[in-house]
């Protein structure tokens, strides 16, 4: 008994160490004074100030955020509409096919998605003259395309789990279909839409492959800049940037967790009363 629990405990530590030590090392090295990323040369914050002066990285970060915000928002809208169309419009011809097709982008290799979108943009330009140049707009469209599928799948599963008699009850009480969607359906699928938005935002912020294919000269997202810099050797500036991103994410997760805990406690208190 004792032996096996020691074994399990050490495996647990090993697993978490494997996950988090690289991140910790990266964070520690962001305060490295040396120019080389792999040799410790004393504590310093010089790479943070260097980062603030590096307009290339900052511009790329802003562009990435912009693309992520726009694409996540549009994808949530379109994905929700798709889910409603697949789940709440009764049975119609081709529904099963459409349901299957909406999930396809999830399993499609990114390289193929990226390449096919590039081909689409190029031939569109030849045929219609639009898009004049590839850049932020084409990346945004590409990100909307695949994020939409994720949103649709998440919202759809929420809709499928929802008691459909809620909507029928609203209709029975005099709500026209449009009003029922606004009054009942949307508030109830809002959590799924939020989850879809967050996932789309993360996917867009994270994406390198599709952005590389669909971008043109002049528009580089943060992952693209980092990746091109790494090819020339990692500079501690990137460590600093990574540390800042990790910091933001950690704060976000802690706040979200804390709010959820508080809500649960409130609910428990109300029920106990």
């Amino acid at each position: 008994m004792r032996r096996s629990s020691t074994f399990l405990y050490s495996m647990l530590c090993f697993g978490y160490a494997f996950l988090y030590i690289p991140i910790l090392v990266l964070m520690v090295y962001s305060f490295n004074n040396a120019r080389l990323a792999t040799v410790w040369g004393g504590f310093s914050t010089r790479w943070y100030s260097a980062l603030l002066e590096n307009s290339q990285i900052l511009d790329a970060a802003l562009l990435s955020l912009e693309i992520a915000l726009v694409s996540a928002t549009v994808a949530t809208g379109l994905g929700t509409l798709a889910a409603l169309g697949l789940n709440r419009m009764g049975r119609y011809r081709g529904r099963t096919v459409f349901t299957g097709m909406i999930a396809a982008p999830l399993v499609m290799p990114e390289v193929i998605t990226g390449l096919s979108l590039l081909l689409l943009f190029v031939s569109l330009q030849e045929l219609t003259g639009w898009p004049g140049s590839r850049g932020a707009n084409t990346i945004t469209i590409a990100h909307i395309t695949f994020s939409m599928a994720y949103v649709a799948v998440i919202v759809q599963s929420r809709l499928a789990a929802m008691d459909q008699s809620l909507e029928e009850a609203a209709m029975d009480l005099g709500g026209r279909p449009y009003a029922v969607t606004l009054d009942i359906t949307l508030p109830l699928i809002a959590p799924a839409m939020a989850a879809g938005w967050l996932l789309s935002f993360t996917l867009s912020l994270d994406d390198l492959v599709i952005a590389s294919f669909t971008s043109g000269a002049g528009a580089s997202t943060l992952p693209m800049v980092i990746f091109s810099k790494v090819k020339l050797g990692v500079t501690p500036e990137i460590n600093a940037l990574a540390t800042i991103i990790i910091g933001i994410v950690t704060v976000g997760v802690v706040i979200a967790g804390w709010t959820m805990l508080r809500q649960q406690r409130q609910l428990a208190n109300q029920q106990a009363r």
């Binding site: 008691d163 008699s165 809620l166 029928e168 009850a169 609203a170 029975d172 009480l173 009942i184």
Partner: peptide, 10 residues
């Protein structure tokens, strides 16, 4: 008007 089996209370 209808009262549903699941009650369907919003």
């Amino acid at each position: 008007n209808m009262m549903f089996q699941s009650y369907a209370v919003f």
